[in-house]
Amino acid sequence: MTAQKIIACGDDAYRLIPSDNHQRHSIAEALRSSDVWDEVVVGRESVTVQYDPCETPPEVARTHILSAMDQADLAQQEIGSSITLRMRIDEKSAPELAACAKANGLPVDAFLDRITRSDLIVDMLGFAPGFAYVSGVDDTLAGQRLEHPRQLTHAGSVGFIQGFLGIYALDGPGGWPVIGRISERLFDKTSQDPVLLAPGTRIKLEVSQ
């Protein structure tokens, strides 16, 4: 049993908090193989599911969660695809790069090296359509949100705070210092599958000048 907790979140949702946080993505994958759920949302430490209690009574929904967790237990394999993204670091694309490196007492190259060598994985999406919280960033690098958020952060921008990168899929307001911009298209509104990055995706960053 991997479950630490299953919590009701109102009349039509459950949140499960696995004891091993790394299992969120495989549990979410197992849950998605069932048609009981309207939504399966990975959070920082949880997976939250929404369902229709008229179709699936709450106690039945609960047993589906338990069996998905058993399935994830059995699976154990690494899930999620891997993707290489190219990041531009010219001044326009990376307005806070120099400041972030300096704050850590590092030359820009060394700062970026530590980031690109990190074991980067899309932890969850949220905040805005396609906005990816990427975890695994070398924890010895310090960084915090901007004092004054930007009205406009360009699509593809890579933000950095301690432990995380935040990748903006769309133009929009944003509060993370920006250390680069991804060249690949992260969001295609004409596609059935509009977002390039999904929870659990492993990322390899390649810096291009």
């Binding site: 109102g10 039509d12 949702a13 949140r15 959070g43 920082r44 430490e45 599911v49 969850m124 949220g126």
Partner: peptide, 10 residues
Amino acid sequence: LPSAGIFPGA
């Protein structure tokens, strides 16, 4: 709290 899935009606 750690960010988690949330739905309309919350």
